[in-house]
Structures are given as C-alpha cells and as structure tokens.
C-alpha cells in the first residue's frame, strides 16, 4: 500500500509544487502587473477571501453539472443501444450525432435562454448538449465491437434479445462507456460554465463579475474551482470504473 501511495501521489505533487513555485517567483521577478497575471499566492488569497461567494457558486454549478451529466448518461446510453440494434438505424442517425457534437456550444448558448428561460434549466441544457455525444459515440463503438464468436454463442443457446443486451453487449461495452463518461465529465463542466454565462448563476457568473471588476486573481480562483469540479467527476468515474471492472477487464486488473 505504502509504495503504491508514494508512486501515485508524489510525482504529481512534485510537479504542482515546482510549477507553482516557478510561477510565483517568475511573475514576481518579472514585475508583471496583477491585472495581467496574478501570482499563485494572490490567487490563493482571493480564493480564501471570496470563499463565501465561491463555495455556494461551486455547489450551484456542481448541481447543474450533475443533472446534465446524469441526463447524458441515461439518454446517451439509450440512444447508443437504439443505434446498435441495426446497421440501418445506425447509418441513418449516427452522422447526425456526430454533426451535433460539432455544434459549438458557445454559439448556441444565447438561444438556450430563449428556449429554456434564464436559470438552472438553460445551464443543465448546456451541460447536457456538450456531454451527451461522447457518451453516445463511445458506447456505440463498444456495443458494436462485441466479439462475433460470443454473439454466435448467445444465438446458439437461443438467448433472448434482452439477455444478449444485458449479459453480453452492455458488459462488453462497459470500458468504452466509461471512457465516454470520462470525456463527458470534463465537457459537462465546460458546458455548465458556458450555460451560466448566458443563463446566470454559479461559477460562470463569478468569472464574469470578477472580469468586469478587474479581479484577475478571483477569475483564476473561480476557474480553479471549476477545474477541481471536473477533476472530482473524473475521479468519480475512475472509481466507478475500478469497482465495476476490476473482476474481469484486464485494463483494470493490471497494475
């Protein structure tokens, strides 16, 4: 346990300390204005000083991200399963799934307010729109890659469609689904922040306010909170992946 811990945490911690220290001294030595680039210590001070603003904002963003991501997982999986049922269905709809994935969220964000009104619903919609397509694309790839020999085996034993899906395709696709989720988790945070720029609330509005008030240190502090949220979700997906797959997928059993 102990060496594993050292192996896992020491290298990133060392990188963090070194880059932070380098940034701190570099910015101070060069005399860069705090308006252009704040020192890490100034950002930390802003984070502490504005914790009463940042933490409720973080909670609000986290809530929107959680709802958006949950919708993405549920609907994304359903769509992927539907698309995987037949080659024809897949060919008819998959290109459009890719097309919508390419739609820039920033460009359509103002419309979300007109469609869903100001507030949480527009923010959830933005988080959902950017995070659902990686779920669809990766799940579908997994569902379509089932070993043909196993598929034949299931057919030989006369397994029902549901049994094939539940006992073969979904378990087979699980690593791909989780890869989709890792991507979706980070994107959902970005989507929510963009949604908040137009719909209001959360860290998005804290960023806008801090920009407007020329508090560059607070902008960085808010951005770091958003990044931490993305990181926490990523870790949650990894933990799920570990518990779900450690018994059978080599990817998780190898050290």
């Amino acid at each position: 346990m102990k060496p594993r811990f050292v192996e896992t945490f020491v290298p990133p911690a060392a990188t963090f300390l070194l880059t932070t220290a380098a940034a701190e001294f570099g910015i101070r030595a060069a005399g860069v204005s705090p308006l252009l680039l704040p020192t890490p210590s100034a950002v930390a001070r802003a984070a502490l000083q504005h914790a009463p603003t940042l933490l409720p904002a973080l909670a609000m963003t986290a809530q929107a991200v959680a709802i958006g991501l949950a919708l993405s997982i549920a609907l994304g999986l359903l769509v992927a399963i539907a698309l995987s049922t037949s080659r024809w269905v897949e060919r008819a709809f998959y290109p459009y799934a890719i097309f919508f994935q390419i739609v820039p969220i920033v460009a359509i964000a103002p419309l979300l307010v007109i469609w869903f009104g100001y507030g949480m619903r527009a923010v959830v919609a933005a988080a959902f729109i950017v995070s659902v397509f990686p779920v669809i694309a990766n799940s579908l790839a997994g569902l379509l890659s089932v070993d043909p020999a196993l598929r034949d085996l299931f057919r030989l034993y006369g397994a029902s469609g549901f049994a094939r899906l539940w006992k073969l395709s979904l378990p087979w696709a699980l690593p791909n689904v989780l890869t989709g989720l890792r991507i979706a988790a980070g994107l959902a945070v970005i989507g929510a922040i963009v949604g908040e720029f137009v719909g209001g609330g959360g860290l998005g509005v804290v960023v806008l306010e801090a920009m407007r008030q020329q508090r560059t240190d607070l902008v960085f502090a808010a951005v770091l909170h958003a990044a931490a949220l993305g990181l926490a979700l990523f870790a949650a997906v990894n933990a799920t992946s570990h518990f779900a797959l450690r018994r059978w997928h080599t990817q998780e059993t190898e050290p």
Partner: peptide, 15 residues
C-alpha cells in the same frame, strides 16, 4: 427583481 446576465441580444426583451 430576478437578475440575469445580459447576452447582448434584445430577443428576450422582445419576447
């Protein structure tokens, strides 16, 4: 008042 961000479009106002 419900305070929301202004998105540089008058569409919400018109509606």
């Amino acid at each position: 008042m419900k305070i929301v961000p202004y998105g540089y479009s008058i569409a919400p106002f018109l509606g």
